[in-house]
Design a protein around this nucleic acid. Structure first.
Lengths: 204, 204
DNA sequence: GGGATTATCCTGTTTTTCCGGGAGATAAAC
DNA sequence: GTTTATCTCCCGGAAAAACAGGATAATCCC
């Protein structure tokens, strides 16, 4: 019995690419595609695939939320996350919401096939790159204390140590210490690179 | 004479999607693809297409830099930027580096065809969404000169005025002046808020 | 040719940050 | 009871940024 595959992605050329890759594969039955969450749910009313390849971002709803909704209504459907982003937080949320696998958009045909085969057996599939990113979470994670976060935000707003001290009712020396700790934790050379790194890691 | 098209993208499924969309089009000759910058340059040694569809991000080099390099070595090649990101700074940099067009990865087949046809005539093609994003830049009101952008990036990297001066072969006093101009243009109180604002507006 | 813009460079002063340590108090974990 | 983590505060000095102006030259556009 062929595995029925459906895809949700807002990039038509991605849909076309994967369809083209899979159309000649025995054991795979291409059911169709949707370019947004609403038409995906609409399709599922009529036909439920075995596996859905689901993009992480759609115009009307995130793939993370759609994943959750689909698993709630159609628990038998396996979902493979699909994204350009190799970002730990997206991947983790997708898996938390019931996805059985996750591949990046630079995956090869073989990898997509392997993902589909593995997930069809009820197992979890994560490509090497994805696994590494999930592991890396613990390594690169900068952990800030409550006070450090407060100071960081106020520094980013452009306040001086004296101004921050006055606002938080602490000594400018205390602010100076927190600042130095922030520089150390982010491995930043000075305030400019601290703020840039903090912005990149979405602390501010 | 058919228009010879080549594509550079690290997502194989995107390559496959576009190839599939274009393969039956009269007037289009599909030359091939590369999945990174190095193999793109290698290909160009042997054959130069009329048009290159070029992703913005590659593992070994950004599409922005690759665009510049290709235009320098093969000025007759038209380049169409290709990206998931509808981000003004990427698009603008691509255009500044010699791209003749830019489309997003949610573009339709018709739109890709139109982009290719327009660019093949030597004209510039920007999809509606892309044009809007470029216009929006003017709304945010911050326009930086070439030197200011350079100084801003180096400040964000954590370099001091002396270091920046040494790197750009200008006086630290000059760097100081550019810096002050940046503070004024962003209406920032100091370097911390300058970097935060610049990050928010995607200058860095 | 002239005006505007950009890029260049400067001085001296004040303010702020960074550095490299030091320290005490409190609460939680072991 | 001890250790760890967090928050608090400090010092002196060096480095850097900010300030508040001033100036010349090259380039671009009308």
């Amino acid at each position: 019995m062929a595995t029925k595959v459906f895809i949700v992605d807002d990039h038509y050329m991605v849909i076309e690419g994967i369809r083209s890759l899979l159309q000649n594969e025995k054991g795979i039955e291409w059911l169709g595609h949707a370019t947004n969450a609403a038409s995906c749910m609409s399709f599922l009313h009529n036909q439920v695939p075995d596996i859905i390849l689901m993009d992480i971002s759609m115009p009307d709803k995130s793939g993370i939320d759609l994943c959750k909704e689909v698993k709630e209504k159609y628990p038998s459907v396996f979902i493979i996350g699909l994204s350009t982003f190799n970002q730990q937080s997206f991947i983790q949320k997708m898996m938390e919401n019931g996805a059985s696998g996750y591949v990046l958009k630079n995956a090869t045909q073989e990898e997509i096939m392997e993902a589909i085969a593995t997930v069809a057996k009820g197992k979890t599939y994560l490509s090497d790159g994805v696994s590494q990113v999930l592991k890396k979470q613990d390594d690169t994670g900068v952990v800030l204390t409550r006070r450090e976060k407060e100071v960081l935000e106020l520094v980013a707003e452009g306040m001086t140590n004296i101004e921050i001290g006055a606002k938080l009712f602490i000594s400018p020396s205390t602010v100076d210490t927190h600042r130095n700790n922030l520089l150390t934790k982010f491995e930043a050379k000075n305030t400019a690179s601290l703020i840039r790194l903090a912005a990149q890691k979405h602390f501010i």
